[in-house]
Design a binder for these strands. Structure first.
Lengths: 155, 155
DNA sequence: CATTTAGTTCATTTTATATTGAACTTATTG
DNA sequence: CAATAAGTTCAATATAAAATGAACTAAATG
């Protein structure tokens, strides 16, 4: 602990940071490593060694991150190892996984509202407003993404 | 389990739903109850009884939800109990707590990028792009909220 | 001022989640 | 085709998070 390098310190901080977003700390650490390392190639084993964790944990967390498209795998000719890198392709991913649930959020609120006997009650109206907000989001979020994409293209 | 009412079933589903957003299941259950109940007044004790949970757990979860502004407390003259209701004032709350972290996200990415020796590397540029995306969000999200607010006013 | 009410606090226990590590699979190399 | 390499799987274990429940506080009531 006393002699942590800047990289090690950073890795731990990113781990804690992503934990707040519902990722496992180890997933966050892997992201931290891939984000901050200067190595151009980072293999499975490199991760195991750098993070001093078990193969099982690294395997599970890498596959989770791949599924979320937060990292990418790449191969090198004549080398049987897999390498991993941080992905900025899916810069939306963490936000998406929370916000693209809008449809589901809406449904759970609608179901709640259907349980009300009095459809004219203040409560029913309040919840209806929340549902409308999610309708609004469903419409606006894709626009926001498009806006970002076109900004990126035009520089 | 076999004889759960529609309300009970709904409460459990909302609990599970909010769990995905990083809330404790019990917090989700409370939200589910407040959302779906037809009772106009729901007290601390009502919640303890309906959710069949301990006072300690309900106390902790209510205070968490109050802090997040997901629920509101109200009082009734001549009655020493506190009552709680679902709040739609802070319809943004769950999103906010994730997204208003943009500033912090940006900082952790910037710190990662500072560790790079080669500021011209592809990786450095990729991460810079992520940082730009968060700049973009910091600018756009407040606009989105304003848009919703004005939509609400004009009906 | 003793008693009830409404809720809080916090040490203990329960439950859920993540990690480990050994055994396994699948592919590659000599 | 034996041996190594690169990971995967999964039961056991460790860690972290949440719930319990008993003891407590603070306010109100009789």
């Amino acid at each position: 602990m006393d002699y942590m390098t800047a990289l090690e310190k950073y890795i731990e901080d990113v781990g804690l940071f992503y934990e707040r977003f519902g990722l496992a700390k180890m997933s966050g650490r892997i992201l931290g490593l891939l984000m901050a390392t200067d190595e151009e190639k980072v293999s499975f084993d490199d991760i195991v060694i750098q993070l001093q964790a078990s193969k099982g944990s690294i395997s599970g967390n890498i596959n989770f991150l791949l599924k979320q498209k937060l990292i990418e795998k790449f191969m090198v000719t004549g080398d049987r190892k897999s390498y991993y890198k941080f992905s900025n392709e899916n810069v939306f991913s963490l936000i998406d996984s929370k916000l693209d649930a809008t449809e589901y959020v809406k449904q759970i609120f609608m179901r709640g509202n259907e349980l009300h006997k009095d459809k004219e009650s203040a409560k029913h109206k309040n919840i209806s407003e929340v549902i409308q907000f999610y309708d609004f989001l469903e419409e606006e979020l894709p626009k926001l993404k498009e806006k970002w994409k076109s900004l990126k293209k035009t520089g």
